[in-house]
């Protein structure tokens, strides 16, 4: 690549520096907001799939199967182009005309609901990894099934799945790049835009890549700390990926 003309300083020039900062901010914001939908919703669905109640289990299974078997990009288009058409007219109008930040909020919703299906699977597998005898022991001492979840099964299940939840969070962080397809100016799209304006492709993409790697590294280190702190004495931590 001898003929390539390096131009790193351009990234610090106006307006490109600002583009990267705002893109990075949007990426982080989308990830955090989507996660705050995905974690509680996914937990509820994962729990639903382990209960004795058939209808609840069925609803949970359908949710997970639907969301994980449709490409995320197709889901993004469904939420953005299709759902407003199918809503009752008044709502549809509101979504199309008056809803603030439509692209941003749509991508948060889409990523949140999709990631919930992944979280649900982790929570379910964590709960299923706990021996049935634990459930019996809780019931035998008079706890209600809900109390058994609250005090016995969930505290252990969440500890088991810290590493997989970490990679799911990183998943939503990376997947936030799909928001660019409906016009959200997040990190990847800003890098692309800089490339188109300045032809400094390598510099722009490298910067974006570096930022993604940095966040990934920080999150993994932080979650290792969480895992260490919550480790049950006498057992061995599994270690985030």
């Amino acid at each position: 690549m001898g003929s390539y003309r390096w131009n790193w300083p351009i990234l610090l020039a106006d307006p490109y520096y600002g583009w990267i900062v705002s893109g990075f901010g949007n990426t982080c914001l989308i990830a955090v907001l989507a996660w705050s939908i995905a974690f509680p919703l996914g937990s509820a669905i994962g729990i639903a799939r382990t209960t004795e109640l058939r209808p609840l289990r069925l609803v949970g299974t359908i949710y997970v199967e639907v969301f994980r078997n449709i490409p995320l990009l197709a889901q993004m288009f469904l939420w953005y182009f299709v759902v407003p058409e199918l809503l009752p007219q008044d709502w549809g109008h509101w979504v199309k005309r008056d809803m603030p930040y439509p692209q941003f909020l749509t991508s948060v919703l889409c990523l949140g609901l999709y990631t919930a299906s992944r979280v649900a699977e982790q929570v379910r597998s964590g709960l299923e990894a706990i021996p049935r005898g634990q459930h019996h022991a809780g019931l035998a001492m008079g706890l209600t099934p809900a109390q058994v979840y609250r005090y016995v099964r969930l505290p252990v299940a969440y500890r088991i799945i810290i590493p997989s939840l970490t990679s799911d969070f990183l998943g939503v962080f990376k997947n936030s790049s799909l928001a660019l397809t409906i016009g959200v100016l997040e990190l990847t799209s800003q890098a692309r835009q800089i490339e188109e304006y300045t032809f400094a492709a390598f510099e722009a993409f490298a910067t974006a890549t570096l930022l993604y790697c940095a966040v990934t590294g920080i999150v993994i280190l932080a979650m290792r700390q969480v895992e260490r702190r919550t480790r049950i004495p006498g057992t061995i931590a599994i270690g985030a990926q």
């Binding site: 021996p131 634990q134 019996h136 016995v152």
Partner: peptide, 21 residues
Amino acid sequence: QLPRLRARIGMVFQNFELFPH
């Protein structure tokens, strides 16, 4: 009310089933 009934009967299991956390 099974929980109330079970609270009056103690049970001990083969694998102890202490809560690990």
